[in-house]
Amino acid sequence: MISYIFAGMITLSFVYAAFSGNMSALSQSVIDGAKEAVELLITLCGIMCMWSGFMEIANKGGLTKVFSKILSPVIKRLFPDVDEQSDAFSYITMNISANLLGLGNAATPLGLSAMRELKGNKRLDTATDSMVTFVVLNTASIQLLPTTVASLRASYGSKSPFDVIFCVWISSIVSVSVGLILAKTLKGRKKWST
């Protein structure tokens, strides 16, 4: 997928530049773009390491477990088919907690384990209701501190990189809710719980 986007973008800009006479600007943009990308990565480096460092303290201290406890009543409602004592349930809560803390590196393996547990050792090629809900939850962003966006804004000279945080929260909550409501309402009458 990304290969087509990459190739398409390059080809299209060449074709359009040939028509609009922007060819010299186009060839300059390649050099500038590469330089800019490296400058961005270097300015981002410090602040990204800083946030990852603090998030790791939170993680090692067991903040994800604290979150999991707080979240489990909500998760019980979202996944009525999943037994609260099962491994699937604890992987789901841990995955969601890690996502809230913005620990992408920790959230993904937990999410994959949750999917594996949801499937169990059944032979299955169709997603169950719980799988749909879980994946929809993972395709939406539920991060408490949007650290990557804030780091990017800071490296482009923002005076207050976190001033959009309330907007991010509201936008996240509304969009996640829309996703979850559709996941629940579009499931149809046939039950896919096994």
């Binding site: 299955l124 090629d125 169709t126 997603a127 749909v132 994946v135 395709t139 969009s175 996703g179 499931k187």
Partner: peptide, 20 residues
Amino acid sequence: YFGSIGIKKIRHTLISALAA
């Protein structure tokens, strides 16, 4: 997520996620 456990029919996942 679906690829990792070999699920091919994802039902209404995509439409719900894109609506979000």
